[in-house]
Each structure stands twice: as structure tokens, then as C-alpha cells.
Design a protein around this nucleic acid. Structure first.
Length: 472
RNA sequence: GGCGGGGUAGCCAAGUGGUAAGGUCGCGGUCUGCAAAACCGCUAUUCGCGGGUUCGAUUCCCGCCCCCGCCUCCA
């Protein structure tokens, strides 16, 4: 079966056909963070979904060119800078840094480019686009000096979100004056400067001001990826108005279809409610690390549920992620040991060889749950074979190669082993001696002492094994 | 009100017109001095509710209920 994705635009699963199938090159634009505070793990769920998308496409032999924007100017960043009494760039810098740090913790592959909205290169492009939209009658400057997109002149407006514009209802979330606009749904392309903006302003043919949120994505996407891009992603809350507006602006300028496939990630929930800064029910990556979990464990927890299904974040879920990973780790350790054994007495293994089922599951709209099911079935099967001594070194290597392949998508390889401290090593040696003498009392005492140092002892038929215990 | 997503075991979660993957937890067993890990076995006659189509529906159709999201600057 071919690669297929659920396209928000059509609301259907569609077979994936890039613009340029021969070149195997794919352009992806992903909406990045607004750097007014530290991104929360709900934000990162979307980025992990995009990471999975990119990695799977690459596994399938596509060459991905991905852009992720950084929104470093908007109402919130300006307000934050003003309240912190620092220049805007200084204010946003800390959150950009934190974002990259957290992304690295979660093993999210870096995009090829991270354009910033304040880059003059893109501001110029935005201004050029707005001018073009005005020339085409798709935009106008209102009495408040801001420039708005005229949605009534763009018949497809509302098509992505499947909204009937005549039915648009205000939820009261927008408190700004709207009487300057021709239509309540017209959105700002250029926001005229006002006192609260202080020194945050750019010159434009319409006077000083700053870009509207939506236009920056259109400008950056088109500058870096061209007029037409293959895939555009974001959270479901970006569908309207943000992505709807992007379509209007971009297609309004070029007259060409802007995006072939729109993919949107469902929300991360807390207590069955959307995780959001405004609700105060959010956790950041450092919050989760402070609870003793690793980035890898959080990555797994956020990755394991299909991207279109809302995912409820719980500490129980984190625990489950930890246990599941421990199972993978144990399996890898065993396989590696087995692969190093001299390949002698074992006849050809009759254990099943790895299949293509893992990547086939991902071909189906990134069905990660099914893919992980394949992984765990394989684990059970090979474990059983090893127990029964039916897996030879060569087969173990075949399975390790398979893991290496699927791990280019999962990126869940255990952290590199931490050296066992000398104190623990010595206690371990003493314990082995005690065990040889069948002095179980002393052996158990030593195990307790090792445990107190944060290490677990495991007696296998190949002798004692030490493993660092994960913090509870 | 409009438009979406979802409701499958204690919890998380795949899936299909032919009789329920996987993870986690719990219980029993093998192994072990004991434990841990690993492995084996058990744990949904049932897939929100009510109808319909069908030889057969959790899967298709109709109606209803519940949860979540979007409806102008939130991933």
C-alpha cells in the first residue's frame, strides 16, 4: 500500500503524491513556537508529530526540506518585553534558546531552517505580498491605518476549516475594535503602530507598524520553499484562522494552490481538557524532567498515540512509557549479547525474520500505535526464541539491523550507559564472593547497600548485572 | 448554533463485514537461595445507547447520548 495521509482540506485519507515525484524531494512547512514564554509539552506534541512525519518520509526515501518558523513578534511578545523592561529581541532570545534545548531533549530532528518573523528579509517579503494583495483588491487599509485582508473577495476563504462565513460567530475572545474593518472576518495583514508597541516597528508604504501573524508564515514559506509546498502541519487549533488565512494570502498573491497536504495534530489534554497556557494546566519539558523522567521517556509518551487522536497527559502514562522503554532496552541488551556470541553450535534459526509491517503501519497515516504493536510482538517473539536458545548470533544481528532501521524513525535508543561507580563495583564484587559462599544474608545486605546507591542488581546465568535504577 | 475529532478491558490504545493487535497494571506459573529481568498462562461473549441492512456488524445506514476542540492572533 502506498503512503497516505489524512488531508484536513478534503477531510479524507489521500494517497501521497508529492509535486515532484521523480526527485523524491518534499517541502514541509511547520508552524513553530511563539517565543513569549517557554513552550509546553502540548506544543511539543505537535513538534514530535512533525518529527515522526519527517523521519518516516526519510525512511521511505524522500528528501525532506523542512522549515519551522519562529514567531518572535506579536502582541504577547511585545507585552512580555514591555513588562520585563527589556528590548524585544532580548526578551524572545531566552525562549528561543529554551525551545531548541527542549527540542533536543526530546530528540526532535532540527528543521533545515528556522526563519524568524523579525528578519528584515521576510518583513520585506511580507510588505511586497501585502502590496500585491492591495493591488489585486484583496486587501485594504482601514481608518485605523492597519491593512486587512478582504475575505469576501476570496471565494475559497473558509474551505479548509469548512466554515460558512455567514455563520461566523464571535466568541468574545477578540476584544479589539472591529469597526474599522469591512467584515468581521477580515484579518490584519499589517498592524499599524501604536504607543504600546514602543520601538517595535517597521516602515511600510502604509506607515510604521508590524506584520500580522498570518502573513509571516506565508512569506517565510514562500521565500524558502516556493509558491507551492507539499505538506503544511500544525495543531488543529491552527486550522482556523491561521492556516485559512495563509491560504488566502498566498493564493491571493500567486493564484496557485499553496499546499497539497494539510496535516493537523490533535491536542494534548490534561484532565480531559486542552493543555494551554491560558488555562494554566500545562507542563514544560523541565517540569517533566524535574519529576525524574527523561526526555526519551517523554518523547515516547507523546509519540505513542496517533497524532489525530487527543492524548491525555498523565503521570501514569509517563510511568507506562518508562516501563515500555525498559522492555525495549532489555531486549536490545539481550540481542546485543547474543549477536556477539560465537556463531557455532546453533543451526539456522527458525525464528521469524523481521518484516516490513512496521513501516507499512506508518505508511497508513502514521499509525504509530500499530507500528509499536509490531515492535512489541517482535520483541516477544525474539525473546522467546532466545529463551529457547533458538536464535543464533546472525539472526540477532538481523534483528539489530531491523531495530536500527526503525529507530531512525523512533529515535528511542537508550541513553548511553553510565559508568558504574567504583564503590558500586566493589560492593558488587563482594556480593559475588558472598554468593559463591552461599552467604545469602551478606549477599542481600550488599544488594541493599548497592540499591541505596541507586543501582539494581540482577543475577543472570551469566553472572551478576548492575543497572542504574531510574528515579521514581 | 455551525464545523471537526473521539467514546474498544482497571488505565493507554490498534483494528476489521466473519467473530477483538499491542502496551501498562493485576493474578498464577517457569527460572532464582530470595528477588529482579525474561518467558508462559489468565484477565472485553464484547467494542457509548437504540433501531435498520445482512447468513453474519464493533466495523455499513439512521436516530440519540456523552467527552473534547475550533468558530479571528492558542501546537
Amino acid at each position: 500500500m502506498a503512503l497516505r495521509f489524512f488531508n484536513t482540506y478534503s477531510r479524507k485519507i489521500e494517497e501521497f503524491e508529492p509535486r515532484d515525484p521523480a526527485a523524491r524531494a518534499i517541502s514541509i512547512y511547520t508552524c513553530g513556537p511563539t517565543v513569549y514564554s517557554r513552550a509546553h509539552i502540548g506544543n511539543f506534541r505537535a513538534y514530535i508529530f512533525e518529527d515522526l512525519l519527517q523521519r518516516h518520509l526519510e525512511l521511505r526515501g524522500y528528501k525532506v526540506h523542512r522549515v519551522m518558523n519562529i514567531t518572535d513578534v506579536d502582541d504577547k511578545t511585545i507585552r512580555g518585553a514591555r513588562e520585563a523592561k527589556v528590548p524585544l529581541t532580548k526578551f524572545t532570545e531566552q525562549f528561543k534558546k529554551a525551545f531548541f534545548q527542549d527540542a533536543e531533549t526530546l530528540r526532535i530532528k532540527r528543521a533545515d531552517e528556522f526563519p524568524a518573523a523579525t528578519d528584515q528579509r521576510y518583513v520585506d517579503r511580507m510588505i511586497a505580498m501585502i502590496a500585491e494583495l492591495i493591488a489585486r483588491g484583496l486587501a485594504y487599509q482601514a481608518d485605523d491605518k492597519s491593512v486587512y485582508f478582504r475575505i469576501n473577495k476570496f471565494p475559497n476563504y473558509g474551505k479548509l476549516a469548512h466554515f460558512d462565513l455567514t455563520q461566523l460567530q464571535s466568541t468574545g475572545r477578540v476584544k479589539h475594535d472591529e469597526y474599522d474593518k469591512e467584515h468581521i472576518g477580515d484579518f490584519a495583514l499589517w498592524k499599524a503602530w501604536d504607543e504600546e508597541d514602543a520601538d517595535v516597528k517597521w516602515d511600510s508604504p502604509w506607515g510604521p507598524g508590524r506584520p500580522g501573524w498570518h502573513i509571516e508564515c506565508s512569506a517565510m514559506a514562500m521565500t524558502l520553499l516556493g509558491d507551492q509546498i507539499d505538506i503544511h502541519c500544525g495543531g488543529v487549533d491552527n486550522i482556523f484562522p491561521h492556516h485559512e488565512a495563509e491560504i488566502a494570502q498566498s493564493e491571493g498573491v500567486t493564484g496557485k494552490k499553496f499546499v497539497r497536504y494539510w496535516l493537523h495534530c490533535a491536542h494534548l489534554l490534561v484532565d480531559s481538557q486542552k493543555m494551554a497556557k491560558s488555562l494554566g494546566n500545562f507542563f514544560t519539558v523541565p517540569d517533566v524532567l524535574a519529576k525524574g523522567y527523561t526526555g526519551r521517556e517523554l518523547r515516547y509518551a507523546l509519540l505513542r498515540v496517533h497524532y489525530r487522536v487527543p492524548l491525555n497527559f498523565t503521570w501514569e502514562g509517563m510511568k507506562e512509557a518508562r516501563e515500555s522503554l525498559a522492555r525495549i532496552d532489555e531486549w536490545l541488551t539481550r540481542l546485543k549479547q547474543k549477536s556477539q556470541e560465537a556463531n557455532v553450535e546453533r543451526p539456522a534459526s527458525n525464528v521469524q525474520r523481521p518484516t516490513q509491517k512496521f513501516e507499512e503501519a506508518l505508511d497508513d497515516d502514521l499509525n504509530i500505535s500499530a507500528a509499536l504493536g509490531v515492535l512489541f510482538e517482535s520483541i516477544r517473539e525474539t525473546n522467546r526464541a532466545m529463551d529457547e536458545n533458538k536464535l543464533d548470533a546472525a539472526s540477532a544481528n538481523v534483528w539489530l539491523d531491523w531495530w536500527k532501521r526503525i529507530n531512525t524513525v523512533l529515535d528511542l535508543e537508550p541513553e548511553t550507559k553510565i559508568a558504574v561507580p567504583e564503590e558500586v563495583v566493589q560492593l558488587g564484587e563482594q556480593r559475588e564472593n558472598a554468593r559463591r559462599e552461599k552467604n545469602w544474608k551478606r549477599s542481600d545486605e550488599l544488594r541493599d547497600r548497592i540499591s541505596a546507591l541507586g543501582w539494581d542488581v540482577r543475577d543472570t546465568k551469566d553472572g551478576q548485572k548492575l543497572a542504574r535504577r531510574i528515579a521514581e
